[in-house]
Design a protein around this nucleic acid. Structure first.
Length: 863
RNA sequence: GCCGACGUAGCCCAAUUGGUAGAGGCAAACGACUUAAAAUCGUUCAAGUGCGGGUUCGAGUCCCGCCGUCGGCACCA
């Protein structure tokens, strides 16, 4: 197209208005306290998930969600809202560091370069961001507060009584009252075990290639999510965040959020709450006991063996000497296998008998204790009671090793499926205490019995694990922590923040578990007797609270002022990809709740409404990727068709949440539409210049034109509200088609149309509006369309005097008939039976009933 | 295996939530304009809604059972 004449001068228009908005500060939003701030104005907070500024620049997936929030933002402004619509950079992270290592360039420099490129690209699409609120997670002025929030976590514990994070000093005082004689070390160790940010020795996912540990969530099929490098299990001392304390609240408080059900259930699933009971099994002759967790205490009578995780601390105690060799062999075998191999081998169960026995508290029976890797040390108590009659895994294991299978639950209905074991609910049998009871009741009775006799208690478990929060990298937030020579950790005072990483020539991984920062000796040994923590925070840290900082981005005193927080929060609309359905959204909800508990924010949840945009596929229907060669670059689209066409096409492709393939023909289609809009207003003069069309006049619109206009206002308004942008655009095409043929084009009505189109295609509409404003100052007294109020529709123009309705006989379409809006049902019933085409169908049959749907149809039921 | 989304003209998608299957775009065909083409304008074409049952006067829409595509989880006791 570049060689051909452009259908309209979008290239000139777009850059012109982009710099106009920039210079005029058109989209600046005011905070409470700012000059000109109007407290009566309602607020709207439209947020995009901020991008990681990669070296590749934007791909067409980015502007999909961004255009949606931009349309909403522009629309809400025209409705009179004070709109917060910001953008920023999630700029810490592995790719920049990897690139830095490979090319010897400081990640700060590559990051700055990438951000500049992203920003220029975003500006070229005409998004109405308030760039004065731009934030960058790698800016010390920003991560100072990330570190500050970490200190809040460090200095808090979860008070089970109040179900809330509470300052750790309160726990210290309580402890001192209860244990006045406890020595300082013991006191300290108790306190440190209760912090929301704590140190623990855990089996971590160590990735040698990346030189860092990874969170469980960052490991996919035993490989690193980024780069697909092998990951191994390795015990290391790491910072952990106690997200599990919030398990219940993270589930319960999803309830009132306006999120897609799918995402809610994804989160519930991930948190994986299950209710059941802890049951104590005595180890005869030792005085010791093993506790298991079960969700089916009603099947206790059917427990015919017990399984400990191979790593369970009591294995050595229960093991008989004659079995110790096979146990050792088995454990070694497990240890050398990666997670991937362990799950691969899941097809058949493995395990060994320990030689030990445990006493089933409910019937005094001694059952054999096995170890097997299908029991995980990291879930529940790391031990289970096995009920092979009613659990698939136990069933498989028992069959493999010829262990007794004892049925204790009878299906309610005859479900003669003998091939698999029965895991559903039914009636208890072979269980003296609960025979005849149904499952729900039986669970209660057994749990109560266990509690009353000291053999156990009600218990809840989560699949969710605490959040592994350390990374062995350079390009991340340093921890505000230093260590004394006795191995005790100390918070660095708030007024010393931010803690900045030292300038280093060499920030390559050390090749072992020591982080790169450990090489900066001077920085580490910052104070006599103290060494700095050399791990850094994971990339998720910065994105956990960025939505708060946008509200008050330049506050040097506080992470957000109380006024700004109270005014702007919470986020009214949050748009981003499903890939963040669990990680980012769970982590930031967790941090938000901690800040809420500690009184720093007023809302329990950060994101009221969430929408996930669907992925955009390549033209071949495959995921876009360099190797497939099907990547569409937004820059090229803008160059050929303009930003308005890109925006419009992204929205016209289909429903926002749906996955859909790109089509260059489709872009041409919407581009043609914009060109039609242009020619609705403009024509070529004899000199070949674009001038206002001579058909544009101050005339009264026809009744038909008014109807189309008001239909369009109505549909576009409703569709924007419900985020159905594709159908809103279709309606605007209808409008354009209806007005294209008109010899006289009423200026007032066409201007209203421009306002409707403005949030979608801001450049062309600003330009046309400005041209009209100049020629018809008596009609338009503003010079920016962005400043115009949103049009309203009037139902009276939508009502038709005459409507064609459908006549059916027994549900089959037989004729059509014109009715007046005043016709009564009786009249219509009578009239339709008189129709020539209908009569033959009514001959020789009895009319049983006539259904009239006003303005729609009549159905004559006859036989 | 479990959870979720989706399945409507050749393609992308609509359908007032139970009321004429078609709004819009792409593609195709024809016509007008043109020396011709492109662009533009106009006209036309097409599926009975993945499959099988059911409820109803009436089902793309509700219910039951399958099939297919995509995404997520996957020894969580």
């Amino acid at each position: 197209m570049s060689e051909r004449r452009k259908q309209y001068p979008f290239d000139k228009i777009e850059t012109k208005w982009q710099s106009h908005w920039d210079q005029q500060g058109t989209f600046k939003s005011l905070n409470p306290g700012d000059e000109g701030f109007d407290p009566a104005m309602p607020k709207f907070y439209a947020l995009d998930m901020f991008p990681y500024p990669s070296g590749q620049g934007l791909h067409v997936g980015h502007p999909e969600g961004y255009t949606a929030t931009d349309i909403i933002s522009r629309y809400k402004r025209m409705l009179g809202f004070n709109v917060l619509h910001p953008m920023g950079w999630d700029a810490f992270g592995l790719p920049a560091e990897q690139y830095a290592i490979e090319h010897g360039i400081h990640p700060r420099d590559t990051t700055a370069k990438n951000i500049a490129y992203f920003k220029q690209q975003l500006k070229s699409i005409g998004f109405s961001y308030d760039w004065d609120r731009e934030i960058n997670t790698t800016d010390p002025a920003y991560y100072r507060w990330t570190q500050w929030i970490f200190l809040k976590l460090y200095n808090s514990y979860y008070d089970e009584g109040n179900q809330a994070a509470t300052p750790i000093v309160e726990l210290m005082e309580k402890r001192k009252e209860e244990y006045p004689d406890e020595n300082a070390t013991e006191h300290r160790s108790f306190i440190d075990k209760h912090r929301l940010a704590y140190i623990d020795e855990v089996a971590v996912n160590w990735c040698q290639a990346l030189g860092t540990v990874l969170a469980n969530e960052e490991v996919v099929d035993g490989k690193s999510e980024r780069g697909s490098h092998p990951v191994e299990r390795k015990p290391m001392r790491q910072w952990m965040l106690r997200i599990t304390a919030y398990g219940d609240r993270l589930i319960e408080e999803l309830e009132d959020l306006d999120w897609p059900e799918g995402i809610k259930s994804l989160q519930r699933n991930w948190i994986g709450r299950s209710e059941g009971a802890d049951v104590h099994f005595e180890l005869p002759g030792t005085g010791n006991k093993v506790t298991v967790f079960t969700t089916r205490p009603d099947t206790l009578f059917g427990a015919t063996y017990m399984v400990l995780a191979p790593e369970h601390p009591l294995v050595d105690e229960v093991a008989e000497a004659e079995h110790s060799e096979s146990i050792d062999n088995y454990r070694n075998e497990i240890a050398t296998k990666s997670d991937l191999e362990r799950t691969d081998l899941a097809k058949s169960k493995t395990g060994v008998f320990t030689g030990g026995y445990a006493v089933n508290p409910i019937n005094g029976e001694e059952i054999p204790i096995w170890i097997a890797d299908y029991v995980l040390m990291t879930y529940g108590t790391g031990a289970i009671m096995a009920v092979p009659a009613h659990d698939d895994r136990d069933n498989e294991f028992a069959k493999q090793f010829n262990i007794e299978i004892r049925a204790v639950v009878q299906p309610k209905e005859e479900e003669n499926d003998e091939t698999s074991c029965f895991t559903g609910e039914g009636i208890a049998i072979n269980s003296p205490l609960i025979d005849g009871l149904q499952t729900t009741e039986a669970k209660e009775v057994v749990t109560d019995w266990l509690g009353n006799n000291g053999f156990g208690k009600r218990a809840v478990n989560f699949k969710l694990r605490d959040w592994l929060f350390s990374r062995q990298r350079y390009w991340g937030e340093p921890f505000p922590i230093s260590w004394d020579n006795e191995g005790g950790h100390h918070a660095i005072p708030e007024d010393a923040l931010p803690i900045q990483a030292p300038e280093m020539e060499d920030f390559k991984p050390t090749g072992d578990a020591r982080p790169p920062l450990s090489k900066a000796k001077e920085w580490v040994n910052h104070e006599e007797g103290y060494k700095r923590e050399t791990n850094t925070m994971p990339q998720w840290a910065g994105s956990c609270w960025y939505y708060l900082r946008y509200c008050d981005p330049n506050n040097a005193e506080r992470f957000i002022s109380t006024e700004a927080e109270k005014y702007w929060m919470n986020v009214d609309l949050y748009v981003g990809g499903t890939e963040h359905a669990v990680l980012h959204l769970l982590y930031s909800r967790f941090w938000h709740k901690v800040l809420y508990d500690l009184g720093y924010v007023k809302t329990k949840e950060p994101f009221q409404k969430l929408i996930n945009q669907g992925m955009i596929l390549g033209e071949d229907g495959q995921k876009m990727s360099k190797s497939r060669g099907n990547v569409i670059n937004p820059d090229t689209v803008i160059e050929e068709y303009g930003a308005d066409s890109l925006r419009l096409y992204e929205m016209f492709m289909g429903p926002l949440e749906q996955v859909k393939p790109w089509s260059n023909k489709g872009v041409e289609g919407v581009h043609r539409f914009l060109a039609r809009v242009w020619r609705l207003f403009m024509e070529n003069s004899q000199e070949g210049e674009w001038v206002l069309s001579s058909k544009i006049k101050e005339v009264e619109p026809s009744k038909q034109q008014l109807k189309v206009l008001h239909e369009t206002i109505k549909k576009v308004t409703h569709d924007i509200e419900s985020l159905d942008f594709n159908t809103a655009i279709a309606q605007m095409m209808v409008f354009t088609n209806a007005f294209t043929g008109a010899e006289e084009r009423p200026i007032k009505e066409l201007t209203i149309f421009l306002q409707l189109l403005n949030p979608f295609a801001p450049h062309i509409t600003e330009e046309l509006f400005a041209i009209i404003a100049e020629i018809f100052p008596q009609i338009i007294d503003k010079n920016e369309i962005s400043k115009m109020p949103w049009p309203e529709y009037d139902e009276k123009y939508l009502i038709e005097d005459e409507v064609e309705i459908v006549i059916q006989v027994n549900g089959k379409l037989r004729d059509k008939m014109i009715t007046c809006k005043n016709d009564s049902e009786e009249e219509i019933k009578f009239q339709c039976q008189e129709l020539e085409k209908i009569k033959p169908f009514l001959e020789g049959v009895t009319v049983r009933k006539i259904i009239v749907v006003p303005g729609k149809l009549v159905n004559i039921v006859a036989n």
